[in-house]
Amino acid sequence: MTSLLPQVTFITVTSEYAEQRIDNFLRTQLKGVPKSMIYRILRKGEVRVNKKRVKPEYKLIDGDEIRIPPVRVAEKETPEVSPKLEKVASLESTIIFEDDSLLVINKPSGIAVHGGSGLSFGVIEGLRALRPEAKFLELVHRIDRETSGILLIAKKRSVLRSLHEQLRLKQVQKDYLALVKGTWPSACKVVEAPLLKNTLQSGERVVKVNREGKPSETRFKVEERFEQATLIKASPVTGRTHQIRVHTQYVEHPIAFDPRYGDAEFDRKLSATGLTRLFLHAANIRFEHPKTGETMILNAPLDTMLQNCLKQLRHQNHS
Rank of each mutant, 00 (worst) to 15 (best):
M1V: 11
S3Q: 14
L5Q: 13
T9H: 03
F10N: 09
I11H: 03
V13T: 05
T14D: 13
I22T: 09
I22C: 09
N24P: 10
N24H: 15
R27G: 05
T28A: 06
L30T: 02
K31L: 10
S36V: 08
M37R: 15
R40L: 10
I41D: 05
G45F: 06
E46N: 07
R48S: 02
V49W: 11
N50D: 13
N50L: 03
K52D: 02
R53W: 02
R53C: 03
P56N: 09
Y58K: 13
Y58H: 15
E65G: 01
R67G: 00
P70M: 04
V71Q: 02
V71D: 02
V73N: 08
L91W: 05
S93V: 04
S93Y: 11
F97T: 06
F97Y: 15
F97C: 05
L103M: 05
V104A: 00
I105W: 02
I105R: 06
N106E: 11
G110K: 10
V113W: 05
F121V: 02
E125Y: 03
R131V: 00
F136R: 01
L139I: 06
H141S: 07
S148N: 10
R157I: 00
S162R: 09
L163Q: 03
H164S: 10
Q166M: 07
L167P: 01
Q171D: 12
Q173A: 13
Q173M: 12
Y176D: 09
L179N: 04
K181L: 10
P185D: 09
S186N: 14
A187K: 15
V191K: 03
E192S: 14
V207G: 00
R211M: 10
E212D: 12
G213M: 07
S216E: 01
E217V: 15
E217C: 13
T218E: 03
R219F: 03
V222F: 11
V222W: 08
R225W: 00
R225S: 12
R225H: 07
F226M: 05
F226S: 06
A234L: 04
T241S: 11
T241G: 05
T248D: 01
Y250W: 15
E252S: 13
E252M: 08
P254L: 06
Y261P: 02
D263Y: 07
D263P: 04
F266V: 08
K269P: 02
T276F: 10
L278Y: 10
A282K: 01
I285G: 08
H289C: 04
P290D: 12
K291P: 00
M296W: 02
I297V: 14
N299Q: 14
N299Y: 15
L302E: 08
T304C: 10
M305C: 09
L306E: 09
Q307L: 13
N308T: 12
N308V: 01
K311W: 10
Q312C: 07
Q312P: 00
N317F: 00
S319A: 10
S319T: 15
